[in-house]
């Protein structure tokens, strides 16, 4: 502040520590999960209740910082009195609910969802999902051999489609999109969890360079008219990469190393530090392999970034790395 005297003297300590206005504490909701009583605050979801009880619940489209889109349906649970299963990520806990997370119906649905994904999407860079497939006994081979990659997915119109013979399993397989030097899009690996659209949209970046286009099995993540990223509204914040659960969106550096067969997470170290650009103070998690930054992420659970970065924080480290190539000092 600008009181002249205060240039010299530190202002006095406030008597009370400044805190946000006190909000009424939420009443607790009591419900039953797998036969056990759970208490969660009002507004908590069934997934929260499961976590409270330490019940391991698979999720794909859920992101703790985002409004649940509840589209993957792998987190479904059985709610007594409900005709169908309910998505635990978005269903709010109500007093007296009786929830089952391990009933045959729940297990079947989860298995089938995982099987559907594994049979239609390349999960090779989604180890967590592959582990879930195993855990639930998904058998994607039941749908037949994989259909060959398609090159027309970006232009498929809604409505009538070519009827399949049924002897091979249709997939979202298609060529990788490499149209800029920073990151690649391999939609053969896309499970359509909507998280990238949320990250690009009003949950974080508010740039809206991508959206879901098309309908049904032909639904896809797309820029306007499927133009390349440099022709789109993309600002290369990479926040979509940060939330992609399957590696469909990937740093070009990671993609290149993987293609060369030199990507090795066991040799990588992750270090949290603060971005060196503007004064906002974003935490960067640097993924370093062989003294080289191969990827930059940000922790989703810290309040400044909530996992988000801008183009400088995410990609602007090259000059640090290239210092070895500096010319020698002038003699």
């Amino acid at each position: 502040m600008n009181e002249p005297e205060m240039w010299y003297k530190a202002p006095p300590r406030p008597t009370l520590i400044p805190l946000p206005p006190v909000r009424a504490t939420k009443p607790q909701v009591e419900l039953t999960v797998d036969g056990q009583t759970v208490r969660v605050p009002e507004g908590a979801t069934l997934l929260d209740a499961c976590m409270e009880r330490g019940i391991d619940t698979p999720t794909v489209c859920f992101h703790p910082n985002y409004t649940p889109v509840n589209v993957c349906r792998v987190c479904v649970v059985e709610l007594e009195g409900a005709r169908t299963l309910v998505p635990s990520c978005s269903r709010l806990a109500e007093p007296g609910m009786v929830v089952k997370t391990d009933s045959p119906r729940v297990k079947t649905s989860r298995k089938m969802v995982l099987e559907f994904l594994a049979s239609s999407v390349d999960l090779s860079t989604a180890p967590e999902l592959l582990a879930r497939c195993q855990e639930y006994g998904a058998r994607p081979e039941r749908y037949g051999p994989p259909a060959p990659p398609a090159t027309d997915r970006d232009s498929r119109a809604a409505g009538h489609h070519h009827e399949p013979a049924g002897n091979e399993a249709q997939r979202v397989a298609q060529p990788v999109k490499i149209d800029n030097g920073l990151y690649i899009r391999d939609y053969s690996k896309c499970v359509l969890c909507y998280k990238c659209v949320q990250a690009c949209g009003d949950e974080a970046q508010n740039t809206f360079a991508i959206a879901v286009a098309g309908r049904g099995f032909d639904a896809r993540i797309s820029t306007e008219n499927a133009v390349s990223l440099p022709d789109s509204a993309c600002v290369y914040c990479g926040n979509c990469i940060g939330v992609c659960p399957t590696g469909a969106l990937m740093f070009k550096s990671e993609h290149t190393l993987r293609a060369q067969g030199t990507w090795d997470e066991t040799r990588q170290k992750q270090t949290d530090t603060i971005c060196g650009y503007c004064g906002v103070g974003c935490t960067l998690t640097l993924h370093v392999q062989d003294n080289t930054i191969v990827k930059v992420t940000s922790p989703a659970d810290q309040d400044i970034t909530r996992g988000n970065l801008c183009v400088k924080g995410r990609f602007g480290h090259e000059s640090i790395q290239n210092r070895g190539d500096e010319p020698e000092l002038p003699a």
């Binding site: 349906r73 049979s119 749908y143 013979a165 049924g166 309908r215 099995f217 639904a219």
Partner: peptide, 25 residues
Amino acid sequence: FRDESCGQCVPCRVGVTRQEELVGR
């Protein structure tokens, strides 16, 4: 249903596709 599924949720998006394939088989 394969034509008209909105494609949002996995059970329906892939389910109607697999169902149609199976009917074909």
